[in-house]
Amino acid sequence: MTLPAIIEAQNLIMAGDIAGAEHALVSIADTQGDRALVRALDDLPSKDLLAVIREYDASRESVINLLVTPEQFAQAVVLERRYGDQTHEQLRGMINSVIFREGADPAEFLYEIGEVDGGYDALADYLLDRAPMVEHFYKYATFDLHEYGDSRTEAREDDLMNLDRDTEGLASPLDMANLEDHDWMQVTHILRNELPEIFREVLMKLRARYRAYLAKMQQEELEESGGVAEDDGHEPLRKEEDKDDDDEESAL
Results as ranks from 00 to 15, higher is better:
Glu102Trp: 03
Ser59His: 13
Gln75Cys: 06
Leu128Gln: 09
Asp42Ala: 13
Phe100Ile: 02
Ile53Asn: 00
Leu252Thr: 12
Glu221Pro: 05
Ala215Leu: 08
Asp105Leu: 04
Asn65Pro: 07
Ala107Glu: 02
Gln219Thr: 14
Glu71Met: 05
Leu237Gly: 05
Ile18Cys: 09
Tyr138Trp: 07
Leu160Ile: 08
Glu230Ala: 14
Asp247Met: 02
Leu163Asp: 00
Val228Thr: 15
Asp34Ser: 13
Asp242Thr: 01
Val116Asp: 02
Arg39Pro: 01
Glu240Tyr: 08
Pro132Asp: 08
Asp125Val: 03
Ile198Met: 01
Tyr210Asn: 13
Pro196Tyr: 02
Tyr83Gly: 06
Glu249Trp: 06
Asp175Ile: 02
Arg200Gln: 00
Ser27His: 08
Gly33Asn: 12
Tyr126Gln: 06
Asp245Gln: 06
Gly226Ala: 09
Gln32Ala: 15
Asp150Cys: 10
His189Tyr: 12
Glu135Tyr: 05
Val26Ala: 14
Ala177Gly: 01
Glu240Pro: 00
Tyr210Ile: 03
Leu127Phe: 05
Asn65Asp: 11
Glu241Val: 14
Asp144Thr: 12
Leu160Lys: 03
Pro196Lys: 03
Glu22Ile: 01
Glu220Met: 14
Arg81Glu: 11
Arg192Ile: 00
Arg238Tyr: 03
Arg238Val: 07
Asp181Val: 08
Leu195Ser: 00
His23Glu: 14
Ala212Leu: 12
Lys47Gln: 13
Leu214Asn: 11
Leu252Arg: 06
Gly226Met: 07
Asp247Leu: 02
Asp17Arg: 13
Val63Trp: 05
Ala76Glu: 00
Asn11Ile: 06
Glu220Ala: 15
Arg130Lys: 11
Asp181Glu: 05
Gly119Glu: 04
Pro173Ser: 09
Ser151Met: 12
Arg165Glu: 12
Leu41Tyr: 03
Glu194Ala: 04
Lys239Gly: 10
Leu160Gly: 00
